[in-house]
Each structure stands twice: as structure tokens, then as C-alpha cells.
Design a protein around this nucleic acid. Sequence first.
RNA 1: UGCCUGGUGGUGUAAUGGUAGCACAGCAGAUUCUGACUCUGCUUGUCUAGGUUCGACUCCUAGCCGGGCAGCCA
Length: 592
Amino acid sequence: MTDQSPAAAGPAPSDFIRDIVAADLAEKRQSRIVTRFPPEPNGYLHIGHAKSICLNFGIARENGGICNLRMDDTNPAKEEVEYVDSITADVAWLISGWADHCLGLKPKGRTPGSVVSEGRADSYLGPAAPGEPSEPFFASDYFEQLYAYAVTLIEKGKAYVCDLSAEETDAYRGAPDQPGRDSPWRNRPVSENLDLFARMRAGEFPDGARSLRARIDMAAPNVWLRDPLLYRIRHTAHHHAGDKWRIYPLYDYAHCLSDYLEGITHSICTLEFVDHRPLYDWILENLGLPRALPHQYEFAKLMPTYTVVSKRKLIELVRDGIVSGWDDPRMPTISGTRRRGIPASALRRFVTGVGVTKFRSLTDIALFEHAIREELNATAARRLAVLRPVKLVLTNIAPGEVVECQATDNPQDENPTMRVIPLTREVLIESDDFAEVPPPKYFRLRPGGEVRLKYACIIACTEVVKDAQGGITELRCTADLSTRAGGENAARKVKGTIHWVSATLCAEAEVRLYDRLFTVPEPAEEEDIRKCINPNSLETVVAKLEPSLADARLEERFQFERLGYFSLDPVESKPGKPVFNRTITLRDQWAK
RNA sequence: UGCCUGGUGGUGUAAUGGUAGCACAGCAGAUUCUGACUCUGCUUGUCUAGGUUCGACUCCUAGCCGGGCAGCCA
């Protein structure tokens, strides 16, 4: 349950929201911190959500609190069970081994119960006890309670049923720089409002015929205070609540009260909700609730370069078949990230490393790549694999002879383990590790030149064999076995060391090489994102692998030396027919 | 011309009245049986103008520039 990664060993993050939390604790405004992560189940989670998850769970974790996972499902037209399942799985994966103990789930099937707070009737829904059957919280589980609160608002003269159409409502709202006008239904008697609202619930009116509105101020400078809608009529079944509702609450109304019902202390969201905060507070304050009220705080969402993080654009990529699905390894979704082989710890390190501010920043994706490499460099087992092979014959090794070479699994370990790789007469090397006419400063193999075969010995190229078209068919070399580890010339230096595999004793696999999906730093700013799709974002090759890779397991992470980090594709790799994904290349100064 | 919000190197982020620091990126070098990792060095910054102060990224005033807001979406 403890995180052994370097990121966890470092100092706890600090930002303006954590400062507020710390002050609330120090000044006893709160005794226990409860945050929440409230996605709408209408799409898959992406790395932008990962920042919010790590912020909310991180704050809970650092303060001995919990973070509720809540489906913000108040719009039945857009939401699906598929999404609640993927969201639940993605959150579990991201926090696994780091904040599992902070995950707030509710008792399965439970809705808010009656409690007494400060001597007054109240409602509350807390998290499930350990071991108890549980599921995420759902805003739709609060519909009954939300309805009761709405009745209270009506009784207090703070809400009314409005008969204006959607278009009329827009017109009456005015513009940001000019006040709106009161709805003609604004001063409807309480009894009539109560009756109409009950009949809205009963399904007596068609979609859009009426709405329930807060009675605030049509001249408010903040447009969200101009009698915002609380409920709309929707004759639609709900994926979680079933078919018993004909009216559904809107976000602004449902969210603050969901927070209250769960005893949330700090409701953390992104910047676009700043304008809604006065409404968040208005609803809670005007209900005269007995317990301490939650407070909303806003931060800037994560916007990485060379990708998009908007559900609408992500949905387009999936729908238009530009990627294979939500979990395509090129997608910035959490499921795509996972399938790509990126460790959850690397994603966490990245999203917490960028910090939390109110500045709308563009984060260089290189920060993510760095976090991935840092994590994988420390943990991935080194292996040899050749992506684009060219044959090389070691003329002084007899056919059938096998020279066993000791190879280090991970030089980053204090006591690295070893394995054996077979060297045979015929080996395969990377085609661009040989150059007939080498560019300046090229220190790999060339005609008449020398290079070391990693973990084996130094070889010298004696002959380049070509076919009739001039294509290279094989390289003939001599191996200096005295330069093997332990040999009398083991210390001999040559400029280059290259990777290789035996041509006769090797495994084979499909390897998928990924590159960034977009060619421009800010694809979201383009008029049409299809025009800046990187045509080379996926290249598939059939690679030759050292024999041990035939036994690779799904959860293992490898560094194919000098190439990058790889792991098995969890969806399409099959026993006997392995498929590897390249998670990321190694940093490459030479390529620049 | 309404309301909200924000401006620190190329990017992100610290410094909350006391030496502008860190990470990434870039460049140069060292090291290397991975052109990886590691190590060293370097380039580049407080939006502007006033004011307060011994001293201002920080406080005040006025500007400038950017982002968001008028869904019966969240």
C-alpha cells in the first residue's frame, strides 16, 4: 500500500489549495478532509482528469481524509453504464498502490439516510466500511433528496416554476453587459409552484414545457445568478436511476447539494466554474442546512502540447476511426496510457509535478515523457531486440556453435541479476547500425570498421555482400572472442556498441511503434484537427527478439536496449503470438 | 462598454517585504559495453509606468495584455 517510487519519497506537493486545506485544519474549521472526484459518465477519463484525481486523492491522502468517487450523472441523455465502468476502472488503476485507502465508495444500493445534525433533521450518505459491498457514489442517488430540497426552496419563495420556452428564457436572460428581464411567471404563488412542480415530476408536461428556476436576480452582473434553471423536464430513462423520473436536476443545483450530502469539505473543480461559485453558495445558504457547508475552489486544467483533452474532440477521434478506440495507445485517455505501458506512477508523477495554479498554462508534453522515462529507467528489465534486421555472419564462429553471453538485466539495480544470451555464427543487427558511407561522427559499424556487440565481443566488418540490385544481403565479420567479458582483451575500447540477436536462436513478435498523434503543439487551436494528424503515429514492424522475450508477461516492462521501453499489448497480444507496444523511445542526442 | 480571472526564462512552477530558485527543454563538456542513465557548466525571466519602503515578484495606484462567462451540458 505504500508507494516506493522516488516521487513519493520527495516532499509533499504544495499549492494554493493545499494551503487553504491546511489553514482550515489549523484553524479548526474542519476536522476531517473529504474531497471528491465527480466525472460525468459520458466519456472516458483522460490525463486532464488524472490531474484532478491526483489533486483530490492527494489532498485526502496527505490529510488522512477520503476522496469520494462520484458519478455526476444528472443528464440521462448523454450518459452510459459503459462509461461508469471505465471510469471506475481507470480511477482504481491510477491510485493503485498510492491512495487506495482514500477511495470513498458508498455501500452498494444505498441512498442518503436521515440523520440529526445540530438538533435538526438532515440527510447524509457516508462511505462504505471496509469489506462492505460498495460502488461509486451517484448524484442520481440523490434525486429524491434533491426534489425535497427544491420543494423547500419553493416554500421559501426562492424558486418558481417558469413556463417560458428555452428560446424565451435565453431572450429574457439579457446579455453579459445588459440586465435581463423578469419572467412573467416569477411571482407565481407558492401553492401554484408546488402544484406545478409536483405535476412536472408526475410527467404531466412535455419536455421543455416548464422548468424550475431559482428566484435570485435577473439584473445580476453575473449571468449565472439571473434566475438559473434548477430542473428541466426530460421524459428519458436514466442509466442508474431507472425510469421513475420525468424531471432531472441541472449541474449547478445537483452538484453543491451532492457535495453537502456526502459531507464534502473542499469541492475542487476547474476554472470554468469560477462564475458558478456564487450560485453554488447561494443554493446551499438559502436552504438553511444544519451542517457545515462545502466550499468550491478552482484550478487551471492540464493542457499538454501535441494532444487534445476535450471529450468532444476525443470522441471525434474514436468515432471517425482515426484511432482504434478510447484505449488506443496513442490516445491521451487513462486507458490508452495504461495500454501503452505507461506506469500509473509515471502519470501521477507528471500530473502532480506540473503544479496547481489558476494560470491557464500549456504544459510541454516533454515533461510527461521525462516522467515516463525516469520511472521506466529505474524499473524496466533490459533486453535485446532488433526492429529492422540486417544479417551479419561471424565467419570465425562455426555453424551450430553457441557462445553463451552473460547480460545484465538492469544496470540501475544495486545487485543486478544476469541472464544468458546465445551468440551464433549468424546474427541480426539493426539496419541503421551499419553505414556503408557513414556520416561524420558516426560510430557504429562501417566497412573495415569495428564495433562491440553488446554483452558479447568486438567484431570487425570484413565484407559487404550485395544482391544484383546493390542491396545489402549480409555483412561478413570476424569476432574477437578475447574481448568477451572476462577475456584477456575485455577492456579493449571501441567507439560504438550495438544491440543484436542470434538469427537462429531468437523469438519473433509484432512491434507497434507509436509517435505523437498530432503534428502541431496546440491541435485544439486548429480549425480542423484532422488536418494535423500525424500520418506516422503508428508503424508496425515484425521484430526479432532475444529468446527470453518469448516468455514475457503482461505486467513486465522492458527496455529494448538503445531503442526504448516496450511491453505487451494487453488487448491484442496472445500467447504464442506476442504483440509489443513501444511505450516511448529512449532519449536520443544523435537523432537531433 | 458587464462580471469573473490571470500575467515570473522557450515551457511549467517556487520565492507572500530581504541574494529571483527548481524541473523540463536547449547548448557545451565529462563518463559510458545502451549516442541511454549519471555528472559538470552555460544561455534565457518578474507585463508597463508611477508610488510606499533602507529594501518590492511580493504592498498601493493607473494602465497594458491574455483567458473565461449569456446550455433546459457538466
